[in-house]
Structure formats: C-alpha cells, structure tokens
Design a protein around this nucleic acid. Structure first.
Ligand code: NAD
Ligand code: NAD
Lengths: 239, 239
DNA sequence: ACGCTTTTGTGAACGGATGCACAAAGTCAC
DNA sequence: GTGACTTTGTGCATCCGTTCACAAAAGCGT
C-alpha cells in the first residue's frame, strides 16, 4: 500500500473518456495565452457541467487552488501524464483504401501524442507506394514493427470482411490496443482493448432522434404536445 | 394515453445506441440464410450478453417467441422502424478535404438508410468539381437543400476552426441533427442533436489503457501483481 | 492580522444501466 | 393431448455515474 497521494488507481471509464476533451480545451486556452482557469470556465469550454469536471479531476489528484482555479499548463501536463501522452505511441494503419488514405494524411495524430510508423495493406498494387511520405508495406512486417518500433496500437481500416483476420494478425504480433473502423464486432483475448468508430451507428442514432422530433412536431399539430419541453442547456445526445 | 402496446415511448439512450449493432448482426444472419435466432446467438453476434439484449428488445415490444427465439427478418424490420430507417434520410457532407472525400466515396451510407444529397465546401477551387458522382456546391445552397430535398442531417468534416461557423449555418437552415468529425465542442440550441466522432479521443483512451497495461507488466516483474486478473469474456473497453 | 470572497474537493442523494435468476409461455416429440 | 424442454420477458438487487450542496481552504483587501 503506497502512501503516495496521487497513487489513486482506478479512474472511472467515464472520466477517462472525458480527459481528452479537457486536455483539448486546456490546449486551446494555453494558445490564447490564458494561464489560469476556474472549473466553471473550463467546464464550459469542454461542454460539461463544472461539478462533473471537478469530480473527474479529483480522481487524478488535487491540482486546483481554492478561490483561484487551475493553472492551465500544470493541469494539461497532469492530464497528459495520466493518459500516457508524455511519450509518443507508435501506431500502424492497416488498409489503405479511401479511409486509410485520409487517416494517413491526417495531421491530428502527431499533435496529440501519436506517431504513424507504418501503413500496411494486402493489395500488391499498393505495396511500395508512398502515402503521406510513408511507404506501404505488407502485413508480414508486423512482428518486426512490434519488436523494433515498439508498435502498440493498430488502426483497422479494411472492409468488415477482413477485419477479424487483420485483428488476429495484430494480436498475434503482440499489439494489445486496436481502433476499429470496420463495422463489425471483433473477438479478442481479455488483455486486448478494442475501440470502435462507427459512422453508420452514429447516423442511425441521429436518425432515431430525428424521427422522434418529426413525430413530436406532427403530433403537436393536432393536440397538445405529448411531452413537456425539457429546458436543458446545450443539449447533446448523451452516450 | 394510447393503449397501443408498441406505443411505449422513452427507449433508454444506452439501448438506442446498441440497436444499430443488433440490426447489423441480424442483416449478417439474414445474408447467411438464417431465419430464426435465439437471444443467446444474436447477443454473441453483437458482442453483448443475452440478458442485456433481451432487456433492450423488450423496450420495443414483444417480438420473440418463447422456446424458439426471434424471427430474423421480422426483428430486423422492427428495429429499422424504431430507428427510423424505413425511410431514407437525406444527408449533406460539409468540407471536402481528405476526410470528406473518403466519406463521399463511402458506400456504407446508402446501404443503411442514408442518401448523400449534397457535398459542400467553401473553397472556390473545389466548387463544381465532381466527387463520387456528386457536384461540390457552395454553402449558400443549404436553405434550398432543406426546403427541396428535406435535408435533415449534416456531417461536418471541416477543420475545427470552421466547425462552429458551419454548424451555425446548418442550424440556421433548419438542420437539427449533426455529426461532427472536427475535434471541438459545438454549441447548439436545445432541439439540435450533435454527435461527435473523434479519432484522437479514441486513441488517447487506448493510450491510457495501454499505459496501465505496461505499468502492470513492469510491476509484476518485481512483485506480485498489484491487481488480480479479472476473468472477463471478450473484453472491450466500455464507453 | 483578520474577516470577506471565491472556488475547490467531496459526501450524500439520486437515477439509470447491468446482471441475475426464474416464472411464464410457448414448442415439439410422442 | 400431454409432458418435458427450451427460451423469452422481467422483477429485483447491484453497480456506476451524475448532480446537488456545502464545508474547508486559499487569496485578497484593508
Ligand atoms: N470510407 C469511409 O468514409 C468510411 C467511413 C466509415 C467507415 N468505413 C469503414 O472503413 C473500412 C475501410 O473503408 P474504405 O472505404 O477505406 O474501404 P476500401 O475498400 O477503399 O479500402 C480497404 C483497403 O483494405 C485493404 N485490405 C483488404 N483486406 C485486407 C487484409 N486482409 N489485410 C490488409 N489489407 C486489406 C484493401 O486492399 C483496401 O486497400 C470499411 O470497413 C468501411 O466500412 C469507411
Ligand atoms: N483526415 C482524417 O483522417 C481525419 C480524421 C479524424 C478527424 N478529422 C477531422 O476532420 C476534419 C477534416 O479533416 P481533413 O483532413 O479532411 O481536413 P482538410 O483540411 O483536408 O479539409 C477541410 C475542408 O474543409 C473546407 N472548409 C474549411 N472551412 C470551411 C467552411 N467554413 N465552410 C465549408 N467548408 C470549409 C476546406 O475547404 C477543406 O476542403 C478536421 O476537423 C479533422 O480534424 C480528420
């Protein structure tokens, strides 16, 4: 049992998911030359309530000053450290189709603690081609990437039909964190984390709410609105 | 108060978020010629526990048959209806850069109840150009799109600096559902839904867990593991 | 030095989501 | 027709996350 006050492990998943947004908000403030910020201001910049922000930050330690607020640089550093962004994580993108091309060209990786170390594809016609300054390689280099570059994160941008196969290859090579853009469920061992980004799902959730709004408007024409309007600030469909 | 048994409004957000995955699993089963499925099998295909699946489905009505399971086609139809996918939703993509190009070329829209009716950009150099068979138009056509095509959903694929401006234009034109790919918080009126897809956030969450795994492995070398291994099937980082 | 103001950090109440376990409801073999 | 078997739908307990509200802590002005 360590007595270190910051050694509190077990940050809730919901909090971890919001830390990147706080970090982004802090970066924006720092760029505007702001050095100190209250929980109210930062929460507003990040699109959450101040109580939630404070509780989230309390899980990392006590970095605020009562009556004043948080020092922007220091808090940004603490969040970066907690997220493991004080080092650069090597990332490989697999599947250089439409989406893979866009991802490879995306500058948002480098600015946020990630480094694209490889672009992989199965298509012989793509191999050797250069995309965004990186040569496309075959899947066989995976073991080497893990051993020599410390590859830790794989991004799957292949069609759904190939995704599980690619996933298995990543896991076999030792990659334990996977970001999946293919619309399918991946089966992985317990120690591997998978996160999914799914455009269709997001659109379908929007469609559900859109339909509800359309029906509500229709209903309101002939009768009193079935549901009272909920006054709510800055409504965003919760996840 | 209608007595219609299917008129149960107020499906939990968490359930709505999973319906698209169930629908996809059902579509896959139907393609393989399977006509009937149990909650256990469908749950496994969708990557959830069967009890959760059954509770989710119970919110839409009672479409299963005890002792047998669910009829694939019928359940798929019911979920589609609930999500509002029995009609095609017109979608506009704003910002035809790297990401916008990939999205425009993406076939996943049409197969899932969406129709790209317009591609918009501010850049005069792109206007009039054809991408995936659709001509790029200026932002000024927004009002027309809403009035004549019934545009309901806008996809923002511009840089973060322009996103709020584009969002305001969409809202002013009457669009009330927005999918945002730019890494920033959008401020909208209460009746507008915004969902965000954020690559960096997802990677940063993976980095957090990756770091924990690295630290745990390190700690295990010199001492007994600090945390007991949790046996958990098919672990996916929860959201 | 001291009291006033501001803002944090957190205990406690609340609400929603998850997982368990089983009665009810249906099928199917005979 | 009947009984054994399968699988759904759901009540209940539990867990996790959010929100409220305030005492404690720090700065600041006088
Ligand atoms: N394009 C988009 O905007 C978009 C949006 C959301 C989701 N997606 C999803 O992302 C994935 C990729 O989409 P895309 O439009 O880029 O597809 P694509 O067909 O243009 O590209 C797929 C690439 O993957 C490669 N590939 C196929 N099997 C492989 C294997 N086993 N190993 C290595 N490489 C392999 C192919 O050679 C091809 O280059 C799909 O699952 C799609 O559903 C795409
Ligand atoms: N490229 C990727 O893989 C990727 C991944 C994740 C997130 N994103 C995000 O998606 C967004 C777009 O990325 P990108 O790489 O395609 O950028 P990009 O710079 O290639 O393209 C942006 C496009 O938006 C247009 N635009 C700018 N301001 C506009 C305005 N006010 N109205 C209409 N159009 C406008 C520009 O003309 C340009 O064509 C960015 O916010 C980026 O952070 C991109």
């Amino acid at each position: 049992m360590s007595a270190d006050p910051s050694a509190r492990r077990g940050i809730p998943d919901a909090t971890v998911a919001r830390l990147p947004e706080y970090l982004r908000a802090l970066t924006g403030l720092a760029e505007r030359g702001i050095t100190s910020v209250s929980s109210e201001e930062l929460a507003s910049a990040a699109g959450v309530r101040s109580a939630k922000l404070r509780k989230d930050l309390s899980h990392l330690g006590s970095y605020g000053v009562r009556g004043v607020g948080y020092e922007v640089d220091h808090l940004a550093y603490q969040i970066s450290r907690e997220l493991g962004l004080t080092q650069d994580w090597p990332v490989a993108i697999i599947g250089m189709g439409n989406l893979g091309h866009a991802l490879a060209a995306y500058s948002g990786f480098a600015t946020r603690g990630f480094r694209v170390v490889a672009l992989l594809d199965q298509d012989a016609g793509l191999l050797g081609q250069e995309i965004a300054g990186i040569t496309v390689q075959p899947m066989t280099v995976l073991d080497e990437l893990v051993a020599e570059q410390g590859l830790a994160i794989g991004v799957i941008a292949t069609p759904a039909a190939s995704a599980q196969e690619v996933c298995d290859a990543l896991v076999a090579a030792g990659v334990r964190s996977i970001l999946n853009f293919a619309p399918c469920v991946l089966v992985v061992p317990d120690d591997v984390d998978v996160r999914k980004v799914d455009l269709s799902t997001e659109l379908q959730i929007l469609a559900f709410h859109e339909q509800r709004k359309a029906l509500a408007a229709e209903g309101a024409l002939g009768a009193v609105a079935l549901e009272p309007v909920k006054p709510e600030l800055n409504r965003v469909v919760g996840r």
